[in-house]
């Protein structure tokens, strides 16, 4: 069966100016530096990497919160990278976001009911209040929040409940693609597993496609079908979940995997402890950006950028070793 591509991100770039004093030399951060991947309909694409590597920026480029400098964002075959603000309106509904901190993303002075009805009011001005209420109630129920909470304010909920509300809100307009930026990172493990299960259930029920952004590889492994590993603004490996976690190829992916503390004292594994710090994104190393920390770096790595190459069916790696 041929899979339907919902989103295709092609060589996307985004540069942010760094605010330095006016007389200093102008500096830039290459937050996203030529990123390409595709997401099939109904799949979850996990984007992992360490702090500042450009995961959130990639998510925001996809849903148009910030404008792409170069490259294409094709949604169902339409390039969104260069369309006008007005044309964007069409895509606001099918693409929704879930954020890490549900507290910051829910307006503190609005009741849950109003927070959830707001998108309907904006997009369907003619919809009756009772119809809106019934949509809201149904979705809240599906997200595990009972009806009697409708009149409450966000601060009256726990972190996990607020994330459920955030998820319910993202589903109100029946989206196709959900961009979830660290949706469980602020939650305790017992709550995290509740939310991950909920996201899986909703995906099945509403045929959702997820771009799931996280720094936690265990969470990404659990929820994703395919995974992209980012380092300093670039994807270093893109592959099926099985390939990434069973046969990682890129030295950075390997190090990242070996760094996760395993919740099992019997597991004794070969750990690759990387030397040195993550370089600053405003001054990335030349050639392969990972060469300053790579245990396998060769001469060529310092000079030439390694491009993403197909190394197996559904596995691409950017490394001179392959």
């Amino acid at each position: 069966m041929k899979k339907e591509v919902l989103l295709e991100v092609k060589d996307v770039k985004k540069v942010f100016p760094l605010s330095t004093s006016w007389f200093a030399e102008k500096k830039y951060v290459r937050a996203v530096d030529g990123v390409s991947f595709t997401i099939n309909k109904g799949e979850t694409f996990g984007l992992v990497g360490e702090s500042g590597c450009g995961k959130s920026t990639t998510g925001r480029l996809v849903n148009g919160l910030i404008k792409v400098d170069e490259g294409e964002v094709n949604y169902k075959g339409n390039d969104l990278a260069n369309i006008s603000e007005k044309e964007w309106k069409k895509y606001r509904k099918p693409m929704q976001m879930i954020f890490q901190d549900p507290y910051a993303s829910l307006s503190p002075r609005m009741k849950i009911k109003d927070i959830l009805m707001e998108p309907l009011t904006i997009h369907f001005p003619k919809m009756s209040s009772s119809e809106k209420q019934s949509i809201v109630k149904e979705l809240l129920g599906k997200c595990g929040i009972s009806e009697y909470h409708l009149e409450k304010y966000p601060h009256e909920f726990s972190g996990g409940q607020r994330q459920r509300i955030g998820i319910a809100r993202s589903l109100i307009l029946k989206p196709e693609l959900i961009i979830a930026d660290e949706p469980v990172s602020a939650l305790d493990v017992s709550i995290q597993s509740q939310i991950l299960n909920l996201m899986k259930d909703l995906q099945e029920e509403y045929e959702l496609t997820y771009l799931f952004i996280s720094h936690d590889l265990s969470v990404v492994e659990h929820i994703s079908d395919r995974v992209g590993v980012m380092y300093l603004g670039s994807l270093v490996e893109v592959a099926s979940k099985q390939a990434i976690f069973k046969e990682p190829k890129h030295p950075y992916t390997k190090a990242l995997l070996s760094s996760i503390p395993q919740p099992d004292p019997k597991v004794k594994r070969e750990q690759i402890v990387l030397q040195g710090d993550i370089p600053s994104a405003s001054n990335p190393p030349a050639g392969c950006k990972f060469h300053t920390r790579c245990p396998l770096a060769m001469d060529i790595c310092k000079k030439e950028v390694a491009q993403l190459q197909q190394v197996a069916e559904d596995q691409q790696v950017a490394c001179h070793l392959y």
Binding site: K200, S218, F245
Partner: peptide, 12 residues
């Protein structure tokens, strides 16, 4: 509750 790599379960 903790997801474990290679565990291969659908629900936590």
């Amino acid at each position: 509750s903790v997801p474990k790599i290679g565990q291969g379960i659908n629900r936590l």
